[in-house]
Amino acid sequence: MDFDLPESALAVREGVTAIARRYDQEYWSRCDADKRWPEEVWRELVDGGWHSLAIPEEHGGAGQGLLELAVALEALAAGGAGGAASFMYLLTPAFGGLTIARHGTPEQRAEFLPRIVTGEIETCFAITEPDAGSNAINIATHARRDGDGFLVSGQKIWISGVERADFLVLVARTVPAAEARPRTSGFTVLLVDVKDAVAQGTLTYQPIPKLGTNTVASSTVFLDEVRVPADRVLGEVGRGFAVLWDILNPERILAAASGVGFGELVLGIACDYARERAPFGTPIGANQAVAFPLARIKAQVELARLMTYKAAWLWDRGRPCGSEANVAKLTAADAAWQAADRAFQTHGGMAYSLEYPVARMFRDARIAKNIPVAEELVLAHIAQHELGLPRSY
């Protein structure tokens, strides 16, 4: 066994950390308050090729893997971005670059990947629906054949980044759920030209007011006979579930990497305050009531990091990693939340002041326990597949 990161991942950590450290917490607080995408950071990631790590070299990328993407995301979050980092590596690098590199035709890869590398196009992902959240089997958005393409109609919800996206990686049914045998058949993954559909009036979206992670909007998306050419299918028509799982496992692994980096960032902020704050003449960090919970969180973060790297390593080698991805996501999300909660407590009343970043991090950390998959479903998966207990849903 070798627990040393490869040189490629170490270089990624160093490069992305250098970018992150150029932007202080005032920058991230302003982006959040203004509900503004961190354009300056994104441009540095694009210009340095740090967003296209997993795109093959023949298309201009670095030809690396999910492990390097995970390390990049972790470094960006830990370096200061916190929760804002996750969307910067999920939307285009993973949902677009990784998915097209793995499942696109040669023509699709040649068309899209070089443009992702240069930052010419961005992507997002649409699976969740009002009546089909964690239960993707119940997706009702449908794509029906029409000449040499498809017409797509339906509604998606909590779609992050559609306001920036050029293309939407969309999961639709080409066979109704009631007719699909087995239940996982009849799905098709499509590349939807967002700007063209908006111009045609067949795609509209409405941002959802939300508690946190305000550097990217999350919207309800309405599709009304959106035309998608047949050459924009990712994978095979009706057999998109294989593509879907190849999206969802990396999503969970990258979410875990975000949680690890987030936990490190918030823990560092809490420890800095605990070293400096001395209301009774001694730093509060000298008190075991303050120090021990922080030390326990450090242990949780380190354990989550190990599982995150293991899951990414397995995925890069084409090996089953569903359980590892779920465990990584579960433990990292909890570590990030515990870190944020303890940072809030460590700061006392000052945590409520927006002069400190703790309040923003507290609300940003909480959502990771619910997305991209609720922890209850993760536990149900572990109970069934790892413990052999009866299926609960």
Rank of each mutant, 00 (worst) to 15 (best):
A365L: 10
L5C: 06
T202E: 04
E225C: 13
T128E: 08
F187W: 12
Q345G: 10
P130H: 11
A374K: 13
P114K: 09
A177L: 13
D47C: 15
G80K: 03
A365C: 15
Q64P: 00
S153R: 08
A75E: 07
I371F: 09
I284T: 04
E68T: 03
G83F: 11
I159T: 15
C321M: 05
A172W: 01
V171K: 00
T346S: 05
Y273W: 12
Q64D: 02
V260T: 04
S323K: 08
C124W: 10
L354T: 00
A359R: 15
E324L: 04
V228Y: 01
R366I: 03
R36L: 08
A383F: 10
A380P: 09
V175L: 11
N326P: 00
G238D: 08
N249K: 13
A278W: 14
A289D: 05
I157G: 00
I247C: 03
Y356D: 14
R232E: 11
I253K: 01
K156P: 04
V216G: 01
A172F: 02
R305F: 00
A77Y: 04
W337M: 14
I157K: 02
N326I: 09
L113F: 03
G149N: 09
A336D: 03
G261Q: 02
S86D: 13
A172I: 02
S86M: 12
G63P: 06
E122K: 10
A126E: 06
V162F: 07
Q206A: 14
T215A: 02
A270E: 14
T204S: 12
V12E: 01
H381W: 12
R239W: 06
S218P: 04
V373H: 03
D146E: 15
A304L: 05
D231L: 06
R102H: 03
R30N: 07
H51Q: 15
L354Q: 00
F87K: 15
V171E: 04
